[in-house]
Write a protein that binds this DNA or RNA. Structure first.
Lengths: 191, 191, 191, 191
DNA sequence: TATGAATGAGCATTCATTCAT
DNA sequence: GATGAATGAATGCTCATTCAT
């Protein structure tokens, strides 16, 4: 099992990557944050890039896991959609730092490692698409391009890391409520 | 005024920043791309960061300008919303590279320059919020938190740079149509 | 505390600064001189300028320390003057390189660091002025502008770094004897 | 005859070299100061180093010229000594900037050009040595090492550029008086 | 004369990584 | 495990100088 020290390092890295960005964060910074020498860090990590990759992977995996659970449940599509929004926004807002790193810094990884993240992300998009497709198939949702609607929803949700304040007045549930209302019923007053 | 060479440099920079990211792009890379020596670049730019700042500013300014024009027009809120979506998505998809740089790399700027971009971005959000508020006031839109609905719409639209393929089958108009439908009337089959 | 390597670097820097001047000496030169890579130097120094500052400070501090000791002694003003001349010239001639750097390169430091050196130098001038003032007060020295006489003496002594040959026939004692004779009794044959 | 523009350039260079030091002064700085483009400067000068060399040469030549005139005059050695001190100090204080450059920046020249200055300087020292030797031969001055006494006097006088304030209360005549008194009769109260 | 674009070598500094102890 | 010295490549940037126009 991963040692405590490793967890400490990952945590420190996430915090720093969030605040300063991946590139602006030096290995020295991370070492300072955990009270180790730069060289000692390499007993736990194999490199700065791998640290980022690990961080990103750990984040996206959680998203996929939870989404699969929601999809597997026996509820209405509308209900699943609300749950999925709540889940996604909860993860995003619960660890804005982690989300920031995941959503912003993936370019920093070379092409190959980035693909790993991309694949997991694509899988996540698939799950959302399936949710919407099922809703359409069941008549709960209006027909249309499910994939693109999923992209719109995910885009809106991912953007949250840009403005959400962990210590602000808004909880993730409140955001989820508003977003669910918006995405399910639209802005317009259809009367 | 702006010389051809400067434009060439900015273009090359945008392309490179998009592909490799701001940090992974060296001044040397840019110089190579325009066929100049590294040092010669500094006749045109005052530094790598300023290049990014300039690029970002030029992009966000265009968004604000167009949004103001739409807001000033005499049309229904629904119509304005559609126009705004078209405009935004057209800009984003027309120069995905530029958008990528704007939306992804602003952290790379120091705090002060970043603020400049942030301010312009905030102003843009204000314009969208106003559009929605006016729709609510006029009874065209259902009441609610206009600012957060604006954030959702913008998030969805900005995310497009992540998946849009300039040479793909989808035009920005098609995306705008689908997004307008989604945001105005929602996913659900309200029947 | 100070490691051997650091001393080695300082020594090499002094030698190079003396020979080629501060600006004409590159960090590479210093690295070559101590057999390290350029980058490795930064384990020991925090920058080229600080190296110079450190060198200068170390030099001027020694001057002040010794001068204070002489002033504190219970001897005639004439005797103190001779001792001070011997001391100053011994330091200057013993490490002409160090003196050269101190006396020639302080402009190279920015304004603030330069001030540190200037302050220490001013203090040294004060000590000399006091020596002469005490001589005047005691009737040993003819009355006059003590500060300016101190400036003349110091100017003459500092100039020595310009012509003194460490491997020449002249010892610092010989120079001190001649200078003491000159400054105490003058050139003129007062009969 | 040297054009006005050239004089302007030299003047600007001296001023800048004095204030910021030779190395810290860029050709751009000089160009800015005279309102020309960097490239245009090279119609008048052949390089930055030559500019310094010219400046230095022009300065030292004046010293030599005046000293020869004094030596040729028919006066007592004491009187010549006073006149020489007045002359030297007047030149030094009249254009402290020029003196600073001459006395501080000669290292900046490569070895060969520096030699030119060194030769002129050596010649100047010879003239002073001759003055003192003649005083000794005539019995006006106490016997001793004339060259070293000249070095002491010159050192004291040259040092003046380090502390003299062009806009201060002290005139060069006042300094010359005090220095003449000091060098001729010494500090000590010979009773 | 004057310009200003272009050069190309040079510079101080940073940094992820390695490795002997 | 931990250290910290050492690496060496890379980076952004400066600058004196050249030269076609």
């Amino acid at each position: 099992m991963a040692s405590n020290k490793y967890e400490e390092i990952v945590l420190a890295a996430v915090k720093l990557f969030d605040k300063k960005g991946y590139h602006a964060t030096s290995v020295q910074d991370i070492a300072d944050a955990v009270g180790l020498q730069k060289g000692s860090l390499y007993h736990y990590i194999s490199g700065k890039a791998d640290l980022l990759l690990g961080v990103a992977q750990r984040a996206i995996t959680e998203f996929n896991l939870r989404m699969e659970r929601i999809l597997a449940s026996k509820e209405s599509a509308q209900s699943k959609m609300k749950k999925a929004l709540e889940m996604h926004l909860q993860l995003v807002t619960h660890d804005v730092q982690l989300s920031t790193v995941l959503l912003r810094e993936s370019v920093a990884l070379g092409e190959n490692p980035q693909q790993v993240i991309q694949d997991a992300t694509d899988q996540y998009l698939d799950l959302w698409t399936r949710l919407i497709e099922e809703g359409m198939a069941g008549g709960e949702f209006r027909p249309g391009n499910a994939r693109m609607k999923a992209l719109a929803v995910l885009g809106a949700c991912n953007w949250v890391y840009r403005w959400y304040q962990e210590d602000g007045a808004l909880t993730s549930e409140m955001v989820a409520d508003i977003y669910a209302d918006l995405f399910l019923d639209g802005i317009a007053n259809s009367k």
